[in-house]
Amino acid sequence: MKIYRNTLVGLLATAALATAAAAQECEVTLRSSDTHPDGYPTVEGVRAMAAEVKEKTEGRICIEVFPASQLGEEKDAIEQTQFGVIDMVRASFGTFNDIVPETQLFSLPYLFRNQDHMYKVMDGPIGDELAAGFAEKDLIALAYYDGGARSFYNSQKPIDSIDDLSGMKFRVMQNDVFVDMMSALGADATPMPYGEVYSSIQSGVIDGAENNYPSYDSSGHAEVAKYYTLDQHLMVPEVVAVSKLSWEKLSPEDQQIMREAARNSAVIQRQLWADQEKASEENVVADGAEIIKEIDKTPFIEAMAPVYEKYVTTPEAQDLVKRIQETQ
């Protein structure tokens, strides 16, 4: 036992020395927060950025990623990043709604035609304009990640057209936009906690819900709601942002390295997300789910006119939505 204890102490001491030596190699260590678990596409995306930054700065700048809310939930992590307590954060646009008002528009249903459309918008001039809004709040937006697309699934029948939604009851998040979206589509919205969805579909309290492929798969909802319609009514981007205080400590050359690495990491993250979606689709299909892909989205989009009229009220917001929709 004594020999084992001495060996263990020796191993721990060696590991501690190795960690200290690695830290000494980095002139700057940036701490990055993520709420998702280890191995999740956003976590691995920032790690890819970290690897490129470390290589291009010859080890001078290191980015240490803390997954699984180790540095706090998204709202807290954002606030800490604004104050420079944390150096970086990866978070959903939805969490920034009270900080950067323009991000509210990205929770509008059917704002993006598909994922390629979202990428073109976020990687173009509109993404640059949004970055300026983040900068006003002491956050430097470096890259936009893919947060997935939410679609409808139910236990009753395939949804091939907007008429199929009439009278059906769907669980949605407690959000006025979502409730109004369901009403515009002719369905009934039933806000409820996520943990109650499975039993509520199983018992017939609701007909279905809406979420992305991985959530549909991992939650087990595919077991009780076999029909998944790929309408992609909601795509909310995510952002990788650096504290302005941490950013201004970097040289212009290092800032450029960070920007390039972040943009490259977005490409990697999006592919990782696509791979995860594909794996989840294969899982649910193998378990008997029916995927409805070939639908005409036009009637769904046109039905959103009263929703947009209610929530897109200022000339600036109307112009931004118009430019997003016109991006090719």
Rank of each mutant, 00 (worst) to 15 (best):
V53W: 03
M258G: 03
P109G: 09
S203T: 15
T35W: 03
V46S: 06
R323L: 15
D128T: 06
D146T: 00
Q115R: 13
Q256N: 07
Q115D: 11
A141N: 06
T7Q: 13
D275P: 04
R270T: 15
Y228S: 08
Y227S: 09
N175I: 13
L320K: 02
P299Y: 01
S151R: 05
H221V: 05
S166V: 07
G127E: 07
G147P: 00
F83P: 00
R171N: 11
V28H: 11
V312A: 12
L185F: 13
V177H: 00
I292T: 11
Q325G: 04
C26E: 01
A266E: 05
K56L: 10
G127R: 02
Y40L: 05
T42R: 04
I159M: 07
P237L: 12
G72Q: 03
T190A: 01
R171Y: 01
A303F: 03
M258R: 05
V267H: 13
E52Y: 06
Y308K: 02
K278D: 07
L30C: 11
V177Q: 00
G208S: 10
A274N: 11
M49A: 08
D176T: 14
N175W: 10
A68S: 14
E238D: 13
N114A: 06
C62Q: 04
R150S: 12
E196M: 07
L250K: 00
H233P: 00
S33A: 15
V267K: 15
D254A: 12
V321G: 01
S199Y: 10
Q70N: 13
A286W: 02
R90M: 10
P193M: 11
I140T: 11
K249E: 12
D176A: 14
A21S: 15
K157S: 11
M88V: 10
Y153H: 14
V236G: 03
T313D: 06
A289C: 12
Q202H: 05
K157I: 07
V100Q: 02
D76T: 09
S32N: 06
N264L: 11
P306W: 14
I268P: 02
E27W: 02
E326M: 04
D319H: 04
V9C: 09
E260D: 15
Y311I: 14
D176P: 06
A286M: 08
A48E: 12
T42K: 03
I324Y: 02
E58D: 15
G127K: 03
A187Y: 05
E223L: 15
M118L: 11
T42W: 13
S251Y: 07
G204D: 06
V307D: 10
D160E: 14
G148W: 02
L142F: 05
I63M: 01
A23D: 15
T313G: 08
